[in-house]
Design a protein around this nucleic acid. Structure first.
Lengths: 203, 203
DNA sequence: TCAAACAAACCGACTAGTCGGTCGGATAGT
DNA sequence: ACTATCCGACCGACTAGTCGGTTTGTTTGA
């Protein structure tokens, strides 16, 4: 890689880092391009050399963030073979990833939601990817007779939503102090519901 | 009530209706005050007579919407005595209310989230109120020995999140066609988890 | 070896347009 | 006559995106 390309790459990264910072602290609309340029120690012109518009910059940020999260979760899942253990791993990894990257959580769970219709598609992709991951797990579990047949799509949505909201709560109120602490109760709930019957059967 | 007061009241309502329409179709930031004034068949000056700022208008809208939803749910719950039946009623009522008022759902679940830090408090109040309602149910159920002791706060959060996300899905993708159709599967999932054991015990 | 020519990357003042909020005046109810 | 309500032209602040020009790195050819 030539020196030019390398510099360009680090510039791009600097811009993305600054964008993450500014977008998450002000929200998409209230984040000014000038602010991002300043925060990245580059310039507005430089920013517009790398990204054609504010929207494209935000989209790129969303893309990188969600891709990173997804691969993290996928590798964590790949380490397990049992379908339910894979679900466990996914849950643990999500809590761990968000717990360690507050800004990433804010970006994906708060800022991306209210940023406007233009981003709904991208966001939907992320939701769909996650839901598919979970639904896959559940389908496998059903196929192996570990859990009874059911609407796995809806179950996946509900799981996703439950986790989502616990993370959101953590972002907004700071509870629980360490996000990962929610894991055991959340796991139990997702598997057995509030009635909590037959816990021993699967564990 | 004098004629003036009455006119004022209907004006205010017209403004709120228009605000709901415009805010939900463009998002908070991209909704222009002029647009709302036009949509309400009144004027910008008139709007600013009734609401001191854009923020206050949105806040008022949020307040009315969430209050309406809450009382709906509370009355539905009051009709039942058994804690779990109360939870059921709440779930049914929420799905019914959102299912019948798309814009209300959009406002509370999408637009309010990304509108900015200023609204986080109000949104938090709503979350807390709902979570408290559910947690109360669960606590009662625990006290009556219907379900085992557990972290009812977290369970309430997770329930809320799950329902939230199913509604969101409905808003964004249109699935399921009728929101209420999600009720049976959702209920089963919240009570028994994916393992779904011992369904007959409680029902 | 080293200019000179070229291209990619970068800069920031400027443009053009938007939008929340104001204000002086009009109008309707009492 | 007096007040509450309503109107819309206007103001000032702000900002996404542009553009002419500069810097930095690479290639060419003598």
């Amino acid at each position: 890689m030539t020196a030019v390309q390398e510099r360009s790459k680090t510039r791009r990264q600097r811009l993305l880092d600054a964008a993450l910072e500014v977008f998450t602290s002000h929200g998409y609309s209230d984040a000014a391009i000038d602010q991002i340029a300043r925060a990245s120690d580059t310039s507005k012109g430089g920013l517009y050399f790398h990204f054609p518009s504010k929207q494209a910059l935000f989209l790129a940020l969303l893309g990188e963030a969600s891709a990173a999260l997804l691969t993290d979760v996928e590798t964590a899942m790949a380490a397990e073979t049992d379908p339910l253990a894979r679900g466990d791993a996914a849950l643990r990894e999500v809590l761990h990833a968000f717990g360690g990257h507050r800004l990433l959580a804010r970006l994906l769970l708060i800022d991306a939601v209210g940023a406007g219709k233009e981003f709904a598609v991208k966001l939907d992709e992320l939701h769909a990817a996650f839901a598919a991951l979970i639904a896959r797990c559940l389908d496998d579990a059903v196929a192996q007779g570990l859990i009874p047949p059911q609407d796995t799509r809806l179950a996946a949505q509900a799981w996703y939503g439950a986790v989502n909201h616990v993370v959101l709560r953590w972002l907004m109120t700071g509870e629980p102090r360490r996000l990962e602490d929610a894991y055991p109760a959340l796991r139990r709930l997702l598997l057995f519901g509030v009635t909590g019957a037959s816990q021993e059967k699967v564990r």
